[in-house]
Structures are given as C-alpha cells and as structure tokens.
Design a protein around this nucleic acid. Structure first.
Lengths: 151, 151
DNA sequence: TCCATTATTAACGTGAACGTCAACATCATA
DNA sequence: TATGATGTTGACGTTCACGTTAATAATGGA
C-alpha cells in the first residue's frame, strides 16, 4: 500500500471537487492559503478531502464578504494558530501568548460577523427593491394583457 | 439664472456624494451605465442628485451580487426601457413589443431575486459558522483565564 | 480681468486573481 | 515497457475596474 491513505486526491480531482481549476489550487498554495501540501514520492501533491472545505471557505469569504486573498490568508493563518493551540495545549506555550492569540482571533471573528450582518441588511434592502419592482412589472404586464383582450 | 436648476452638481461634488471618484463616474458613463450626461454650455457635465441612487444601485449589484459592470449595464438598460414604456404609454409602441419587454424585465428581476436568496442563505450559513467559532474561542479564552488564576 | 479651482479628453499604468503555454516529469494501465 | 493522461515549475498573458498623469479648457469669485 502507498504511504498515503486511500482517500487522497491528486490536484485534478481535488480541483474538480472544489469547483475550481488546478491553477487556482496551486495559486492558493503559493499565496499561503493552503499550507505546503504533502507530496507523494517526489513531486506530486496529494490532497486530503477535508481540504475541500477549506477551499470552499476561501471562496465564500471571497464572494460573500468581498475579501482579498491576502485578508483571507491572514484570517486562516490566525485560525490555524488557534487550532494548533489545542494540540500544544499541554506544552503550555506561555499563557500570555495563548491569551493574546485568542484575543486576536476573537477580534477578527467579531469583525467578520459585523460584516456579515451589514451585508445581510443590505441584501434585505435589495430584496425589497427587487420584489417591489417585480410586482410593478407584473401589474404592468397584466394591464397590457387586458388591453390586448379589449382589441 | 443658469439654464440648469440650482440643484445640479458638477462631477466632483457628485462623485463625493456617491462615495466614488470622478474617474469612476466618467468610466460608468463610457461603459453605458450612466446615459450621456447633459452638458452645461459646452463641455462640463451636470448631475441631477437623483442620479446618486443609480450609482449606489450599481455599487450594490456589484458588491452584493458580484455582477460585472457589463451585466449591470444590461439590467439597467432594460429597466430604463421599461421606464420609458410608461412615458410612451399613449404612443402605443406595439402591444407585442411592450409585452416582450415586460417579460424580459420580469425574467431578469426574477433571476436577480433568486441570486439574492441564494446569497442570503450562504450568508446565514457563514454567520452560523462564525458564531460557533466565536463561542468556542470565548470558551477557550475563559479556560485560559481560570488557569491563569490558578497559578 | 485675473487667477485659483475644477473639468475635459486621451493615453498609459496598475493590482488582483487567475489563464495559458512550454518543456519536461510521472502515473497508471494495457 | 510503451504510451496517453496527468502532474510539475516557470514565465508571460489577460481581464476587470478603475488610478494616474499630461496637456488643455471652462468656472467663478476677488
């Protein structure tokens, strides 16, 4: 059996699963959004399926909140650090450091949430506008129908 | 008194009111998002304040729905045509033509609304994720606090 | 009437997020 | 083991939505 588990993907399959191209995946890695990917044997990257969620997360932050890849990278790096915190929990890497990291993460997440709330409000306004417009159009269309009948 | 009404803006003021730069305004005109602006005397553009809403609409469609300016242009042109329909109502420019136009507009608006609903759903998912993350961070932070006290 | 402020067009520049191509390596399977 | 599909790293190209600069003209108040 190969050194990788059975459920590891090559870049082509992985990209399809994420709904992007291999180029995008390599680009994300180069920009530090996907940390250096384990290579099989010498050169080929192998992707664990749970990385799909990470790529989808990137796309969501990109399209839903209009974040730049650089902003997203910073956020992901911070989240990763918090995640490793749990791992290193019993190595006790200075309580102060842990607290600072958590405070940063809390701050960042709060900002993201604020942005989410703003967007949802704006979207609701847009929704109202569109629904109004639609009903006006439908009224006009019905009016036009009646006029057509009357001929 | 000048041939324009008192409440007409020059491009600098207008751009500020829209929260963009004059360059953006001229660019929008060039791309057909703002129909040829009436010029005072010879060259200078004058903007009616109600055009501010149009620019804001453009920005909303851009940032909230991720539309390209080309898509937005098409949508605005269609809306404008429907608007002139009302004006030309008694000129009766062929009932069929009116109905086709309205049907197109209804179709387009429906698509926009569908997009809005999708986005809102995605945003709600993101919101849930972020709120979960935040509470986990806060729990960790509290844990860290208690540990600090215990020393 | 002078002159600082603002506007005009035309042209080239820019940053982000990839696309595309070349030249080569590696995989999987018949 | 041959070979077609897939992967690798550069490096240059592309699109969108403007930014910036230059050279010139119009505005409007002292």
């Amino acid at each position: 059996m190969s050194p990788q588990t059975a459920s590891t993907l090559r870049i082509g399959q992985f990209a399809v699963a994420c709904g992007v191209t291999p180029r995008t995946i390599r680009f994300y890695e180069q920009q530090g959004l996907l940390s250096a990917i384990p290579r099989q044997t010498h050169t080929m990257r192998r992707y664990s399926p749970d990385l799909i969620a990470r790529v989808e997360r990137i796309q969501h932050l990109q399209t839903l909140l209009d974040w730049s890849l650089e902003d997203i990278r910073a956020a992901l790096v911070l989240e990763d650090q918090v995640a490793t915190l749990r791992t290193q929990y019993y190595q006790n890497p200075s309580v102060i450091h842990r607290q600072n990291l958590l405070d940063e993460a809390i701050q960042l997440t709060t900002n993201q949430l604020t942005r989410v709330y703003q967007r949802m409000e704006s979207l609701q306004n847009l929704q109202r506008d569109l629904e109004d417009k639609l009903s006006r159009y439908r009224a006009l269309r019905a009016e036009s129908d009646r006029e057509d009948d009357a001929r």
